[in-house]
Amino acid sequence: MSDGPTPATTRSVAARAVDLHKTYGKQEAEVRALDGVSLDVYAGEFTAVMGPSGSGKSTLMHLLAALDTATSGTVFIGDTELARLNDKQLTKLRRDDVGFVFQAFNLVPTLTAQENILLPLSIAGRKPDQAWYDQVIDTVGLRDRLGHRPNEMSGGQQQRVAAARALVGRPTIVFADEPTGNLDSTSGAEVLKFLQHSVRELGQTIVMVTHDPVAASYTDRVVFLADGKVVDEMQAPTPEKILERMAAIQTRAMDAAAERSLEGGAA
């Protein structure tokens, strides 16, 4: 299934999903958003999750980031098994160990960029590590914008602020669900470069959902999802290779659908 070298045993796992199932609705209306996903996310790596619409990407992100609970299966962040945590501990985990960037509406409109970046730390009543903070701010390149409110910034700037917020607490892992989905290619590139930079230079771990092969090419590894299952993965991706692979997955899915409808017709 996979190509490229198998992961070296020295790389530690930042997040792990084991046989994750997530179903919505009951009986006839049942939707299997995730249908047995197992995945290791390695520390210090930039991982992309791709797949057709409705394949379960967002659902996977939410389960990994402790925003939702699985129907069955387990999730580990570092060594912590999420199912064992109560609401208080989950809140603490979200605050200290996980960062999250959404597609839109990432910022609190009443707070300045700086306050938004420091939000998780302020909530926890912690002081930022000054050196790290400076590094993040410089990487994100928004030092002159820190006093501005979200409505005074462009979409790309807002997403970078959101990314900086996700990083500033030095979480174990950062999840980003289509962080560039609402942006034009230039603004998108700014955000992606920043994310890539923070993995390469600052040693962060980031998992990003995207539809865009170009965006995915900024990452180290691409995981492909279809119908709630991991169907493929790729190391050192390029836009061309990704497009190829996606087309293959698409065809396979169409074949399968055609087969199903033939069978249905025969019966």
Partner: peptide, 16 residues
């Protein structure tokens, strides 16, 4: 609602 969700997502506790 969305903002409240965001605050919860970045770790604000119910009490806060």
């Amino acid at each position: 609602t969305r903002e409240v969700g965001l605050l919860r997502a970045v770790g604000m506790s119910r009490r806060q």
